[in-house]
Structure formats: structure tokens, C-alpha cells
Design a protein around this nucleic acid. Structure first.
Length: 556
RNA sequence: UGCCCAAUAGUAUAACGGUAGUACGACAGACUCUGACUCUGUUUGUCUUGGUUCGAAUCCAGGUUGGGCAACCA
């Protein structure tokens, strides 16, 4: 291991803190999702960062659900989030909930009221907004700002007891209505919501706002480094203000730029729309940028971690190219996925000089990149399926496949020569006839011939059938979230193409959901959980790079 | 119009006052029983104007550009 890698800015901060003894030699981070949706690849970056940073410096990471808004949150999400984190390969120190601290937070609020730093507000949301001013004009003080401590204490207690309706009262911090930072203009600490909470049930009808819950939760847990995304930078002074006025453990907030990926959307709101309006088949649809979607698509946890490490950490906004994600999974699967032959768009090929009824078992390497992967036997006969695009009657220059009089190698088998074709009434080829060279058998070729092309095939009588789902990017534009108009109008209508009957080599029948293969010359595929004993279903994770496709595209 | 954050090849990231490097992508070639993989090569960059300094991507000041902030969301 040559450790010349330079430190990112968070690693530098941690190392400085460790060196100065600021955190007592301790590193404790936290990953704080709100359980109101499924995790996506943007969260993966945060997870890799928080857990990775702690691991690197002998620290720990808490999983804390930021469940301060009962109306949006649900246990379903809690479970999926835990599953996704574990799948990514991380284990948390403690599983905690902001709702665990509701009583403590309430006491903190009482403390601030007693210090004259918080007051109960009577105004409506609209009135509060109006008093808030604008970024360029100062706000105005609320009449409630001068309420006595005793009255505030009484009112706040009655808020808790449920004497008021939703929206009737709020608790605000008394800071500065003229502050240049809008977050410091007497921000809300508590609001009334007579709603059922997924963990505390109906015990509470007042709930703390993010700003009043997050920093204190960090502090209660003695979090040393509270790492969040850039949009929380303006919240930091408030984060620090509460901690300082409460005189509690000084957790420190640091911010990094979230991960963005092109050709997709990352906001929970938009992802939710895609699911709820039926543009995709659920949160784990293989086209979704969710962890569960990528998993189902066939991405490995290692490839996602790898992406997160490759993109680095900085404070500038960024958009990662999808091709980098694809590179990460191809790189891994090239090393680890066994090869298989699958014909996705089949056309029949008959070898006229191969004995009818004869079957040979041919040896095939499982993975040329992995010497330990072994080999398997493939049945070969005179009637095969090959890929329709691998035969052309009038091939262009540099077409290294089959055509009349053209020779090509059948992978792991023989060299064949195209002879003639049958066509249907519409002129479509129904059968290709070819002859083979018996002396060109793979492994013992003494034909003396070399051919430019090698194609894959399956024996018609032995092939298994499978459904293959071909996925492409979900959107047609690089940044659907930023385009004018509804982002859903940029959905790629061809992002899913189902091949109901593909022919695959018979051994694939043993594959189990989650197994991954390289279908030679076609891409990497994984077995979908929809697979049943009657019907196999494969998802295309990613294509192979295809220089020929590029070549033909240039000609057009 | 206030406050805050940022600015290095197409993208992402490094260089921490001393040779602008790496990866992905693109392009060209070699190899190939996968037009894959691998290998080789090419291409493209410090937002701008000043200042400090022997020396600035780096420090300072102004400008420009992009992003964020005015939810009883997180």
C-alpha cells in the first residue's frame, strides 16, 4: 500500500483536531437521514464519508433518524434505510432517533425560555413570514417578543398539553430580527402538530424544528464532527448559537458538496413523484438512482463505494458523469463476473455439413480474467441461434462478422462460413445456412486460418429461454432537474425494453437472484428477484463498451 | 439589493509559495477465439484585473460568473 494519496479537506480537519487534542482524540460521526424516503446514491456519498472518516481515524458512526416531522415519516423507510446502509457494507455504533430526545429537547427549550431567549408566538405562518423581512430588508419584532418568562413558560407547557390547535402557537428563539442571516431572525423552535408519530405515537403534539433538534442531538451524542451538505452552511451560526446558549457539548458542523449525477434526478421529492405517478415500478426500479434501484440493476456495493471515493470531497457544486459510475461497475464485473452466452435477438443458423442429431460438449472458460474461475461445458449442434445483427447480406467495410462467403469464429467452437439464407414474405431472414471447418475446433485448431471476428451462439435444442430487461438512462437530458418545464417531460421513453424471449446457455438455469454474468459481447447482467422456476429474468446492468457501434454511428 | 459558499482540461479531483499531475471521457493505434479487457499515444486547464514575492493555481484586494439563504420541511 503506497499511501501517497492527498487528504481531502475533511480528513485534514480531523487530523488537525486529533493533533491539537480538540476532540480528546475522539472521532464520532453520525449519519442522520430523515425516514421519509429511500436512500439514493447521493446518500451513499454521505454514508461513505461519515462511516469512512470514522473508520479511518479509529472512530465510530451513529445512525440517527432525524424524525422530527411526524407527517412525512414512516417505519417502512427506517427499515429500508438500515438495509441499504448494511448492504453498502457499513455498521453503525448506535441506532438512535431524534425522537429519543424529545423530552430532553423540551427541557432545553424551557431553559432558553427561562434565560429570556425564547418566546411563544401567537402569529400565523403568514404573519410570521411578513415580520421576517427579506434578505435585503430587516424584519420587525413580534408583539409576543416581550412576553414575560412566566407567561412563556405557562404557554409553552400548555402547548405541550395540547390546549392549542395546529398553527395556533409556536415557540421562537429570541435572537435578532435584523440579522443579515435570515436563519437568525427569531427562528421557530417548536410547532404544534396533532399527528401520530411513527415512534412516539400520540405522546407529543409539539415537535422540534430541524434547527432546534439537530445540533442538540449531535451534542447529546457527543458527536465530534457533524458532516452535512452545503445548503446547511447558513444554519451553522444557529447550530452554534443553541449549543452555546445551552452550554452543552460543542459538536462542530462541517459541510461538503452533495453528489449529483447527470441524466437523473436526485431530489427525494422528484424521486417520489416518479414512483407515485407510475413512471417507474417502485423505489427499487433498476432505473432509479436509489441504492435499492442500483442494487436491483446489478450494481455492487463495492462499485458504489468506489464511485464515492473517486469523486472526492469538496465544497464546490459538481455533476458527476454517469460514465464514471459505469466505469466503476464494469471494472469490477470484468474481474469477477463469469461469462455466458446469451442471444438477445435470435436468428436461426444451420450448419449444413455438421451431422444432424450430433451433440458435442465444448469447453468454455468461465472468466479469462480470473484463472480460478474454471470452465464449463457447452452443448453444440447443427442448429444454433446467433444474434441477428451478426449477419449481413451486404456488409459494409470492416464488418468482421458473418455474410455470404464470410468466415467467422463461433466462440469456443468452430470457424464457419456463410452460405445462403431463407427469407419470409417480407424479406426478413428466417434461417442462415453455413458450413463449418471440422479442423478449426477451439483448443485444437489446425485449420491454419485466422478470422477477424468471433461471435456468440447457443444451441437451439439446448438453449434455455429468459426474459431480459434492457435498461437505459431514465432521462434524455443531462440535467432534467434544471431544464425549463416539468422534469418528467424529459423521461426517456425507451429507458426500459423488455425482451420476452432471449436464448441463453442452459447452465444459466441454475442462477439465483443477484447472480451476475457477462453476456459475451452484450454487457453485464444480473438475475432479477422476479425470477421464478418457470421464468428467468435478467436485468442489464450496463453494456460493454462498443467500438463497432461507435464506428457505425459515425457513418450515419 | 443584504448575507453566505465556491471558481484548475468536457467531467471530477491533486498540487498547501517552487516542474500544473491523476482518473473518467473523447480521439488515434497495437493486441485480441468477447469490436470487451489490456497496452501505447494524442487532445484539452489555473475566471478576470491589480497587489505582495526572487517566484502565485496557491496569499491579499477589487471585479466577474455559478450556487445557496426569506418552509410551522430536513
Amino acid at each position: 500500500m503506497s499511501e501517497e494519496r492527498s487528504l481531502n479537506f475533511l480528513e485534514q480537519i480531523v487530523e488537525e483536531d486529533l493533533a491539537s487534542g480538540k476532540t480528546g482524540g475522539r472521532v464520532l460521526t453520525r449519519f442522520p437521514p430523515e425516514p421519509n424516503g429511500y436512500l439514493h446514491i447521493g446518500h451513499a456519498k454521505s454514508i461513505v464519508l461519515n462511516f469512512g472518516l470514522a473508520q479511518q481515524y479509529n472512530g465510530k458512526t451513529n445512525l440517527r433518524f432525524d424524525d422530527t416531522n411526524p407527517v412525512t415519516e414512516d417505519t417502512e423507510y427506517v427499515e429500508s434505510i438500515k438495509e441499504d446502509i448494511r448492504w453498502l457494507g457499513f455498521e453503525w455504533e448506535k441506532e438512535l432517533y431524534a425522537s429519543d430526545y424529545f423530552e430532553q429537547l423540551y427541557q432545553y427549550a424551557v431553559e432558553l425560555i427561562k434565560k429570556g431567549l425564547a418566546y411563544v408566538e401567537d402569529a400565523t405562518a403568514e404573519e410570521i413570514a411578513a415580520m421576517k423581512g427579506t434578505p435585503t430588508t430587516p424584519g420587525t419584532n413580534s408583539p409576543c417578543r416581550s412576553r414575560s418568562v412566566a407567561e412563556n413558560l405557562d404557554l409553552f407547557e400548555r402547548m405541550r398539553k395540547g390546549e392549542f390547535k395546529d398553527g395556533e402557537k409556536t415557540l421562537r428563539a429570541k435572537i435578532d430580527m435584523a440579522a443579515p442571516n435570515m436563519h437568525m431572525r427569531d427562528p421557530l423552535m417548536y410547532r404544534i402538530k396533532h399527528a401520530h408519530h411513527h415512534r412516539t405515537g400520540d405522546k407529543w403534539c409539539i415537535y422540534p424544528m430541524y434547527d432546534f433538534a439537530h445540533g442538540q442531538s449531535d451534542s447529546i451524542e457527543n458527536i465530534t464532527h457533524s458532516i452535512c451538505t452545503l445548503e446547511f452552511i447558513p444554519h451553522r451560526p444557529l447550530y452554534n448559537w443553541f449549543i452555546q446558549e445551552l452550554a452543552i457539548f460543542p459538536s462542530q458542523q462541517y459541510e461538503f458538496a452533495r453528489l449529483n449525477l447527470n441524466y437523473t434526478v436526485m431530489s427525494k421529492r422528484k424521486l417520489k413523484q416518479l414512483v407515485e405517478e407510475g413512471f417507474v415500478n417502485g423505489w427499487d426500479d433498476p432505473r432509479m438512482p436509489t441504492i435499492s434501484g442500483l442494487r436491483r440493476r446489478g450494481y455492487t456495493a463495492a462499485s458504489i463505494r468506489n464511485l464515492c471515493e473517486r469523486v472526492g470531497v469538496q465544497k464546490r457544486d459538481n455533476v458527476i458523469e454517469y460514465s464514471l459510475l459505469e466505469f466503476c461497475i464494469r471494472e469490477e464485473l470484468n474481474r469477477t463476473a463469469n461469462r455466458a452466452m446469451a442471444v438477445l435477438d435470435p436468428v436461426k443458423l444451420v450448419i449444413t455439413n455438421y451431422p444432424e442429431g450430433q451433440v458435442e460438449e465444448l469447453e468454455a472458460e468461465n472468466n479469462p480474467e480470473d484463472p480460478n474461475s474454471g470452465s464449463r461445458k457447452l452443448p453444440f449442434s447443427n442448429t444454433l441461434y446467433i444474434e441477428r445483427e451478426d449477419f449481413m447480406e451486404n456488409p459494409p467495410k470492416k464488418y468482421f462478422r458473418l455474410g455470404p462467403g464470410m468466415m467467422v469464429r463461433l466462440k469456443n467452437a468452430y470457424i464457419i462460413k456463410g452460405e445462403s439464407v431463407d427469407k419470409d414474405a417480407d424479406g426478413n431472414i428466417t434461417t442462415i445456412y453455413a458450413t463449418y471447418l471440422p479442423e478449426s475446433k477451439s483448443g485444437g485448431d489446425h485449420s491454419g486460418l485466422t478470422v477477424k471476428g468471433t461471435i456468440h451462439w447457443v444451441s437451439a435444442a439446448h438453449a434455455a429461454t429468459a426474459e431480459v430487461r434492457m435498461y437505459d438512462r431514465l432521462f434524455t437530458v443531462e440535467n432534467p432537474g434544471m431544464e425549463e418545464g416539468d422534469f418528467k417531460s424529459f423521461i426517456n421513453k425507451e429507458s426500459l425494453q423488455v425482451i420476452s424471449t432471449a436464448y441463453v446457455e442452459p447452465g444459466l438455469l441454475q442462477a439465483k437472484p443477484g447472480d451476475r454474468f457477462q453476456f459475451m459481447r452484450k454487457g453485464y447482467f444480473s438475475v432479477d428477484p422476479d425470477t421464478t422456476p418457470e421464468k428467468m429474468v435478467f436485468n442489464r446492468t450496463v453494456t460493454l463498451k462498443d467500438a463497432w457501434a461507435k464506428e457505425t454511428a459515425k457513418g450515419k
